[in-house]
Design a protein around this nucleic acid. Structure first.
Ligand SMILES: NC(=O)c1ccc[n+]([C@@H]2O[C@H](COP(=O)([O-])OP(=O)(O)OC[C@H]3O[C@@H](n4cnc5c(N)ncnc54)[C@H](O)[C@@H]3O)[C@@H](O)[C@H]2O)c1
Ligand SMILES: NC(=O)c1ccc[n+]([C@@H]2O[C@H](COP(=O)([O-])OP(=O)(O)OC[C@H]3O[C@@H](n4cnc5c(N)ncnc54)[C@H](O)[C@@H]3O)[C@@H](O)[C@H]2O)c1
Lengths: 219, 219
DNA sequence: GGGCACTTGTGAAGCCATGCACAAAGTTGC
DNA sequence: GCAACTTTGTGCATGGCTTCACAAGTGCCC
């Protein structure tokens, strides 16, 4: 489930505050979800709670980590070391969650050899070698949109089956490959949509229904 | 609907290729969704298609833009000009979609006055003025997780009702405020989860069901 | 002007996630 | 040990989203 990481984060926060056990109600509130939903989710992993008491924070933390697969080290490759690629490379928040930025790749010869976050940027031509050398399992695409599909195809050819795409493009992958996308423009657009509804409700009504209104009145 | 931006992007791609009209089947494939779903989504906006022909690309593009509210200019504020804040500030992809990075704010006096992407970084203390001065409607939180809730509360107090949060923290907002979050660690964790299922199916089975198996056999 | 091919718009069925509500299970206090 | 209280795990109903399938509408060709 996609909510496990959320629970994990809530548990980590609780653990840092020194809480030893937590009820589903409390945990649900911390994570911002319904408590029944949380219990049902957790029951999928097994019966890790104690009736009358709740869940042991550290134990549950470990169980969820294991379920997600965070007990192992995941070497991550970033393709496209521009604005975003740099930010991602320098971000410390991944390492603490079991993800290790293992290699950086860019098509621009100018960038090749540049050192970012302690790693030398490799050239795209070496992609094959890089993937093998670092045993890459997860790749991040941070190239311009027009290059995304081509880059993705190459990654898939090299046997990578988990890809996170930041480029604002619809990228197709074959069966068996997981592609997730992070799309900031879309997020902003959704916000704008709601914002418009809130502020300009009356305005929107006028604009949208003007024609209908005109028809109804005039015809 | 959250899919409108996706359709809009697909339409833009088609328009660039010079396509004048498109059927729901084609558009659905370009956007990577089911065609019936697409038609139903579009029918919410009104009857913008022509039976037997399809949809007029440019016209539909305009209609969706208007629906989302992209025909107007949205001044965006970014709070927290670190790694990520810099990348976002320098990103050109927002402007082309009607979003204008209007102001940057950081709590660090060292950063105040620094010029990023043509804008002077302002100090958090001036948040009130900045929001009023630039008529901010949408804010982006790119501060460390521990500051996110406090920053968010201040933004809400200043009347901002649309917030995009990048900090890996559960942030609570009152009714009427839209908070969306972009969570890279979660995305990676979901990928890792599936990756584990794929590669280590046999392994996971052994580990998970060992206890059950032991019980069944031994008891 | 009529038939044919094509495509939209939508009724209806199916599916999945959500959340309520409660029994089962466990704990605490005496 | 027993009763009262707490909290989990889950059966079940509800609601929304997705998808199928088709009637209704439109353009094209003759
Ligand atoms: N910067 C942001 O804040 C931001 C926000 C949202 C989305 N995005 C998206 O993320 C992507 C990257 O953004 P950016 O601002 O870093 O862009 P950028 O132009 O700064 O960097 C892109 C990098 O990709 C490299 N590249 C191009 N083609 C390549 C290829 N075929 N193989 C490998 N590398 C290649 C380029 O050399 C460049 O270094 C873009 O698609 C952008 O739309 C960025
Ligand atoms: N860098 C990435 O690629 C990345 C990826 C995923 C998530 N994130 C998250 O995004 C956030 C920012 O990441 P970053 O790498 O830019 O961190 P950073 O430490 O480089 O930058 C954070 C900035 O926020 C400022 N700040 C701190 N408290 C503030 C406050 N109360 N008001 C205003 N500004 C304040 C700091 O001065 C600093 O400039 C973090 O929460 C991080 O977990 C970053």
């Amino acid at each position: 489930m996609a909510r496990l990481p959320l629970y994990l984060r809530a548990l980590t926060a609780l653990a840092e505050r020194g809480v030893a056990t937590v009820s589903s109600d409390e945990l649900a509130e911390t994570a911002g979800v319904n408590s029944a939903k949380l219990r049902k989710d957790l029951s999928y992993l097994g019966s890790y709670g104690t009736r009358g008491v709740g869940y042991e924070v550290e134990f549950l933390q470990h169980q969820i980590s294991r379920e997600i697969g965070l007990t192992q080290d995941w070497p991550v490759l970033i393709v496209g070391i521009g604005n975003l690629g740099h930010a991602l490379s320098n971000y410390g928040g991944f390492a603490s969650r079991g993800f290790r930025i293992a290699a950086l790749v860019d098509a621009d010869p100018q960038r090749t050899g540049e050192e970012v976050a302690g790693l030398k940027v490799r050239h795209s031509d070496d992609l094959d070698d890089v993937v093998k050398e670092f045993n890459i399992a997860i790749a991040v695409i941070a190239t311009p949109a027009h290059a995304a599909q081509a880059v993705c195809d190459r990654l898939v050819d090299l046997g990578i089956t988990s890809i996170l795409n930041f480029a604002p493009a619809v990228v197709q992958v074959p069966e068996g490959v997981d592609l997730r996308k992070v799309d900031l423009s879309t997020e902003l657009q959704i916000l704008a949509y709601h914002e418009q509804r809130k502020n300009g409700a009356a305005l929107a009504l006028t604009a949208e229904q003007a024609v209908e209104l005109a028809k109804a009145v005039g015809g």
